[in-house]
Simulated assay, not measured.
Amino acid sequence: MSKQDFEGRVAIVTGGAGGIGSATVQRFLAAGAKVAAFDRDQGRLDQLKAASSGPVSIHCVDVTQWDAVSEAVDKVEAEFGRIDILVNVAGGGSPTTIQSATPEDWGRIVGLNLTAPFYCIKAVAPAMRRVGGGQIVTVGSLAAFQMSFNNGVSYTAAKSGVLGMTRHAAFELSRDNIRVNAVLPGPVMTPQMDAKIDAKSRAAVPKQVPLGRWLSPDEIADPILFFCSDASRGCTGTHVIVDGGLHVGAQYDRETYFAKRGE
């Protein structure tokens, strides 16, 4: 059996109708899993279901609300009989400064990026315990280590908190054979990013990234599936950065770097 064979397993993907979320849903379906997609956008959920060839159930859920999360998780377990995997993708931010951000802005962004994954982890743990274990992956951000350029301090703080939560949850849930890890994307061209970014930033990013391009949602979905598969059975409480090399901190683009060296 392939170490990425998910036949008979059930995965929940939050933010499942977005760019990274929908790519992850399709990857799981292709690998044989049954998938429940959580998202706040019913229209995009309907589009996801129409575009999917495998067993996917859709749930219009605000993952920042504990009661809604708990109810949706119960529905998934009742429908599919088990829950093996949780992928927390839902997230987002706003380009506020400390001066311009309101207390409501702070609470909303931290709630979506940090509190919501906590709610989902708390909700699925009993179901995973009942089947002897599971895998949890939260999508963080390179902002866990560097300040976010496109979003504000609330986003940077929340994504940094994702790593602390991942470590702590990995320790507590290890006794239940539940592994907890994180995937930290860099610049990913999702439909949401495509809609909000300006032409200057769109052109500048590839020059800053050693691989010389934006990443695709599929390139984030692949390491998510790795952490959910038996290929990573020795990994918990850790993370992988998927950013095209942006984190190496080069001060020059590739052309300038090699030009200075006569190459």
Rank of each mutant, 00 (worst) to 15 (best):
Y257C: 05
G237H: 10
D222P: 00
Q47W: 04
V240G: 00
T24Q: 05
G212Q: 10
L29T: 15
A90G: 02
S141Q: 05
Y257D: 13
M1F: 08
D46R: 08
T238V: 14
F80A: 03
G15A: 07
V10N: 00
D230P: 03
P223T: 11
A37M: 10
A123N: 04
A203G: 03
V248A: 07
K122V: 10
N88I: 12
P217F: 06
L86I: 15
S94V: 14
T256C: 02
W214E: 01
F149E: 10
Q65E: 13
W66F: 05
Q251R: 13
I20R: 03
G152N: 09
T238Q: 10
G234S: 08
L142C: 02
G18K: 01
W66I: 14
L246N: 01
H59S: 04
S148F: 02
G8S: 09
M165S: 02
R129I: 06
L215T: 05
I178D: 03
I136M: 08
S229E: 13
R213P: 09
I220Q: 01
R108T: 14
L48P: 03
D46T: 15
A195F: 05
V188R: 02
I197R: 13
S100W: 06
D5R: 04
N151P: 03
Y155H: 10
T115F: 10
I85F: 01
